[in-house]
Computed example of a mutant assay.
Amino acid sequence: MLDDDRCPDCHRINEVLSRVGDRWSVLVVISLAEYGTLRFNELKRNLGISQRMLSRTLKELERDGLVNRTYHPTIPPKVEYNLTEMGESFREPVSSLGYWALDNLAKIDAARASYDADATA
């Protein structure tokens, strides 16, 4: 890592990566990138995530400027989410990460099985 004189904000990289790199944030961004605007329950259903965790993740993504939240005062109330301009700019790197994971699932499964077999031997 660079020292503080050459990169005064480098120590903050961990803070940013913790937010944008966590499991649910990545999956929410991928879903919104793929489908556009989604309601809360659509995201919940698509991801298989608990209501509490989705609510927390969306609030954090909104706070960081990656997700827009639009409240429609209808009966029942309707809340929709979509990516902001910054969220759209995050679309490519997060999609690359998702595709990398899909492309390597079999290798990861094999590595885990090998590791687990060695650990029990």
Rank of each mutant, 00 (worst) to 15 (best):
D5F: 13
R6P: 00
V16L: 15
V16G: 04
V16H: 07
L17A: 09
S18T: 10
V20T: 15
G21K: 12
G21N: 14
D22I: 02
R23Q: 11
W24C: 07
L27P: 01
V28G: 06
V29S: 03
S31P: 02
S31C: 12
L32P: 01
T37K: 12
E42Q: 13
L43E: 14
G48Q: 11
R52A: 14
M53A: 15
S55D: 13
T57R: 12
L58P: 12
L58T: 04
E62N: 03
N68G: 00
N68Y: 15
R69D: 01
R69E: 13
Y71C: 02
Y71E: 10
T74H: 00
K78L: 15
K78Y: 12
V79D: 02
N82E: 10
L83E: 03
M86Q: 09
G87R: 07
G87T: 06
G87C: 03
E88N: 09
E88R: 14
E88W: 11
E88Q: 07
E92D: 13
E92H: 10
E92L: 14
P93F: 05
S95H: 13
S96Q: 13
Y99P: 01
D103F: 06
N104K: 08
L105T: 13
L105V: 12
A106I: 04
K107Q: 14
I108N: 05
A110V: 00
A111I: 06
S114C: 05
A117V: 01
A117L: 06
D118S: 11
A119T: 03
A121T: 10
